[in-house]
């Protein structure tokens, strides 16, 4: 798997986990079209970001800061799984 595919896998893994905890059916079998933002409030976004940062660090042995509210249009990165994978891949 290349890096983008690895990031896709951790995004899916994290969505499944969060979906089970928060009872969000759309996260049970995520695809790149899965809409994220519409299901999460700000705390949910933070919870997802914290989990993803840990998975990313475990996978790539380097740290990443996914939550960056100072960035313009930050929340648009969480619209779908696809936008989130692209965003993390570009960090």
């Amino acid at each position: 798997m290349n890096k983008t595919e690895q990031i896709r896998e951790i995004v899916f893994e994290s969505l499944k986990k969060l979906g089970a905890e928060e009872e969000i059916g759309d996260f049970a079998n995520p695809s790149m079209d899965t809409r994220i933002r519409k299901h999460l409030d700000s705390m949910g976004v933070v919870a997802l970001a914290v989990d993803l940062e840990e998975l990313y660090e475990d996978l790539f042995d380097s740290s990443v800061k996914i939550l960056n509210e100072e960035e313009a249009n930050f929340m648009s990165n969480f619209e779908t799984a696809e936008t989130l994978v692209k965003y993390i891949d570009g960090l």
Binding site: S42, M43, V45, V46, A47, E53, L67
Partner: peptide, 12 residues
């Protein structure tokens, strides 16, 4: 209070 940032700090 920036609740998201406080939550992020605590979670990390």
């Amino acid at each position: 209070m920036n609740g998201s940032e406080i939550f992020y700090f605590a979670g990390k």
